Computed example of a mutant assay.
Amino acid sequence: MTERELTAPVSLTLPNGQVNPEAIGWARQPIVDTSGIGRGLGRNKRWEYWNVTTPTHILALTVSSIDYAAVHEVWVFDRATEQTWDKGATVVPSRGAELPANVGSGPARARAKDLEIDVTASTSGEPGGTRLRARIPGASFDVFAELPEGHERLAVVVPWSRTRFQYTVKDVARPASGSVTVDGITHEVPAGQSWAVLDHGRGRWPYDIAWNWGAGSGVSHGRTIGIQVGGRWTEGTGSTENAFFVDGRLHKIHDELAWDYAIADWRRPWRITGGGLAASFTPFFDKTTRTDLAIISSRTDQCFGHWSGTFAIPGGETVEFDGILGWAEEVHNRW
């Protein structure tokens, strides 16, 4: 399978709200305009998910509006003690959320009881990257995710039909720095050892859907490595969200990948292979989330751990990597 590479700005939607056929493909930068996603008959999903890995902590925030509800979360994990600070909010009907029309075109904010999130991009006062601020009882963080010159980001339009489609931007291996405070004690998010990942989503989804997602960022053998893999939800669409990054350069993987894992035995190493990638993922923690609110239900196992393996660059070298911190997850949503 070979996907079309998009090289010029294009609108995700047509004037009638359906997917624009000219937008179906992938790009090295977020050049797809999603400002029209509010048009059409319901089922619109918009979110910003950021994750930051550090030598001592893992940090995450979510700002989202899934049409009839706003769903937000802040999560802080101490890698040494496995203690967590977590606060989520599901607000029905959707309110208290601000999301930009496009990647970085404005701030993303969420407000709910005992939860504050502010994401500020370069276009709204943070030159050179994105600032991530979040606060919940017992924990807060202030992190800057640098956007280096020439850094490439995977942007993909996945079509299920003319009226059901998703635009995803997976931005991995962003250098991060700042601080995290838990129970009154502040810890450094050290530059050169900390990495930020963005999952930016805009689309109109089927009600019942399952997916796998894996990501990793770090330095191995003197090179900056970014791993971005996904599965299940893209099958049969002609699109994939798979890519491997070396020193900021994106190498697209057009194949659907084979995932071998068992959530019931989540500590067992996962194997993800195909398209030149032979990767092993060894988890050390399973973040489980279960939600059942009648119309909305979700089951998520997000396992954090380390990636190792090889990637064969088409027509080039084979890159070895190990010790790359990240995650692999299994999700089933009814939303």
Results as ranks from 00 to 15, higher is better:
Met1His: 15
Leu6Asp: 00
Val10Asn: 05
Thr13Leu: 02
Gln18Ser: 10
Asn20Met: 07
Trp26Ile: 01
Pro30His: 06
Asp33Ser: 04
Gly36Arg: 12
Asn44Pro: 00
Asn51Ala: 13
His57Asn: 10
Leu61Tyr: 00
Ser64Glu: 00
Val74Phe: 08
Val74His: 05
Glu82Pro: 03
Gly88Gln: 07
Ala89Glu: 04
Val91Asn: 09
Leu99Gly: 02
Asn102Met: 03
Ser105Gly: 05
Arg111Asp: 11
Lys113Trp: 13
Glu116Gly: 09
Thr123Ile: 02
Arg131Glu: 02
Ala139Gly: 04
Ser140Gln: 11
Asp142Pro: 02
Val157Tyr: 03
Val157Ala: 04
Trp160Arg: 03
Arg162Met: 05
Gly184Ile: 06
Trp211Asn: 07
Gly216Pro: 04
Gly216Cys: 06
Val219Ile: 15
Arg232His: 12
Gly236Trp: 10
Asn242Gln: 14
Phe245Cys: 01
Asp255Glu: 15
Trp259Cys: 03
Trp259Ile: 03
Tyr261Ile: 07
Ala262Leu: 12
Ala262Asp: 14
Gly275Phe: 08
Leu277Ile: 09
Phe281Glu: 07
Thr289His: 10
Asp292Asn: 13
Ser298Tyr: 11
Cys303His: 09
Ser308Lys: 12
Gly316Pro: 09
Val319Asp: 12
Ala328Asp: 10
Glu330Thr: 11
His332Ser: 13
Trp335Ala: 03
Trp335Leu: 02
